[in-house]
């Protein structure tokens, strides 16, 4: 579904070029859930923006569904760290925004919006304005807004990182349910090992500055997975420990700057 082929990104900084991403090669299969994990400032968001077509790679190319990415695509939906809701639009109208922008018939997508709101438990809040909702609910709205595009691919850029710990877990479990139900290919950027282990088929661990693919870790735990007590605690602990050491071993690498 997605091929990331020798992708690099170098920004022009004030004090010379800054290499954010170096030569990343990855393929993501159809329906796969790939989590990209790395320390802050390792370029994982940059990588995602290149897949989204929001940023042109300095070298290499990204392909989605066999086509080289040259700009944002309608079948690729993005979920940001902030909910990015329009404060004057009700929940339901925020969800319908992509439909309006794409010039699709609203009447044909109403039912889909209703279903998504139902699925995320927002039906009772459909007429509310964003500021009347909690942060977790706002992020659910932004998930619905991405899903209304019927995307083949969803790109999630640390979508839960601004939420409190319990809400994060709740939403992560919900995202797993959505993924199991819809089978959408997902790339999920995070710095939380816990989220990565809960959600991913594979975890791509990036090293810092420049971001390079350090290791791909398979997570063969059957779904649905859950936080807390379950039958796979040993496996979860092993994988978490492995990810931990991969991320932390980065610390002794020579770096010019710490983010």
């Amino acid at each position: 579904m997605i091929t990331i082929d020798g992708v690099s990104q170098t920004f022009k900084g004030r004090s010379g070029p800054v290499e954010a991403i170096r030569d990343i090669n990855l393929t993501v299969g159809e329906g796969e859930f790939l989590t990209v994990i790395g320390r802050s400032g390792c370029g994982k968001s940059t990588l995602l923006r290149m897949v989204a077509g929001l940023l042109k790679p300095t070298a290499g190319a990204v392909q989605v569904a066999g086509e080289t990415v040259r700009g944002p695509r309608r079948d690729v939906a993005m979920v940001f760290q902030k909910p990015a809701l329009l404060p004057w639009r009700s929940v339901e109208d925020n969800v319908m925004l992509p439909v309006e922008i794409f010039g699709w018939r609203k009447s044909e997508h109403r039912a889909n919006a209703d279903r998504l709101l139902e699925m995320t438990g927002l039906t009772a809040f459909r007429k509310r304005l964003p500021h009347e909702l909690s942060g977790g609910m706002q992020q659910r709205v932004s998930l619905c807004r991405a899903l209304i595009q019927n995307p083949k691919v969803m790109l999630l850029d640390e979508p839960f990182s601004a939420l409190d710990a319990l809400t994060r877990e709740e939403l992560a479990v919900e995202l797993q349910r959505i993924h199991m139900e819809l089978g959408t290919t997902m790339i999920f950027v995070t710095h939380s090992i816990q989220e990565a282990v809960l959600l991913a088929d594979r975890v791509a661990v990036l090293s810092s500055r420049p971001g390079q693919l350090r290791r791909l870790v398979e997570i063969p735990i059957p779904r649905p997975r859950s936080f807390g007590h379950n039958a796979h605690l040993d496996q979860v602990a092993n994988i978490s420990a492995e990810l931990h050491s991969l991320l932390l071993s980065d610390a002794h690498l020579p770096r010019t700057q710490t983010a």
Binding site: P72, R74, M78, F80, A84, P98
Partner: peptide
């Protein structure tokens, strides 16, 4: 805000 601009861009 930057997040709304980015949203508009991502929706083309």
């Amino acid at each position: 805000p930057a997040d709304l601009r980015e949203l508009a861009r991502s929706l083309k």
